[in-house]
């Protein structure tokens, strides 16, 4: 079975982001999506720390400590970009102005519940940042994650065992094995990696899926 690499997964997500979309990429894995956005589309990247029209990392030696992304890495501003304060930034999220946010996750439940901020371990120091605002605010919430944990358990579950970030908020899941839509009827697999059939995907996932995988046409 082929698994997508992190870069291939980022490329897969990037393909689905349309021209003109206002998009927030969460810290960690989703940040990679920025490097794969199709060059022929104008897409607006928003960063929670007050930036719209975020550009790529600067050339070495041109970093500016006052120009960073949510992960506190140096970035650039595209021509036409804008700066704003935190109140406006989170109005963009909470107010439903972002078309898409892409988030990492520990677990996603069949109803779209998201767990991505806290393992719940008693010795863990919790940190939430903007995750809960993004989860409930963006029009479409896409999760990007490995399908299985390192020990082989599905991260797509009937009910999240980790503390929730948001309730029934995820609309689509991109993993290294499949693309799955969260629908009112249940989780609907729409794509798998080459060599992985629906039955095997469902077995690995461990909960019922709906088969909506388009036949290969090539």
């Amino acid at each position: 079975m082929n698994r997508l690499t992190r870069e291939q997964l980022a490329d897969r997500v990037a393909r689905d982001i349309p021209e003109g979309a206002y998009v927030n990429l969460g810290i960690g894995l989703p940040t990679l999506v920025a490097n794969h956005l199709p060059r022929d589309r104008e897409i607006f990247l928003q960063s929670e720390n007050g930036l719209l029209g975020m550009g790529p990392a600067p050339a070495p030696g041109h970093e500016d400590p006052d120009l960073i992304n949510a992960g506190k890495q140096p970035v650039t501003l595209l021509t036409g970009g804008a700066y704003f304060h935190h109140g406006d930034s989170f109005a963009m999220m909470r107010g439903g102005h972002l078309d898409i946010c892409v988030l990492g996750a520990f677990q996603v439940a069949a109803n779209g519940d998201l767990a991505n901020w806290h393992t719940g371990a008693s010795d863990a120091i919790p940190a939430v940042g903007g995750a809960m605002d993004l989860a409930i605010g963006a029009k479409r919430v896409w999760v990007m994650m490995d399908h299985l944990t390192r020990s082989g358990e599905s991260k797509i579950v009937a009910h999240c065992s980790y503390p929730l970030t948001g309730i029934a908020c995820v609309t689509r899941i991109y993993t290294d094995l499949a693309v799955i839509d969260v629908t009112p009827h249940g989780l609907q697999a729409i794509e798998t990696v080459p060599g992985l059939g629906f039955a095997e995907l469902e077995r690995l996932t461990g909960i019922p899926l709906i088969n909506a995988i388009a036949p290969v046409t090539e």
């Binding site: 929670e48 935190h86 109140g87 930034s89 989170f90 999220m93 909470r94 919790p126 940190a127 939430v128 940042g129 903007g130 995750a131 809960m132 605002d133 605010g137």
Partner: peptide, 13 residues
């Protein structure tokens, strides 16, 4: 006191 970032901003506002 851990506060989601947007609620922190909104509470300050």
């Amino acid at each position: 006191e851990l506060v989601p970032q947007g609620n922190l901003a909104a509470r300050i506002q």
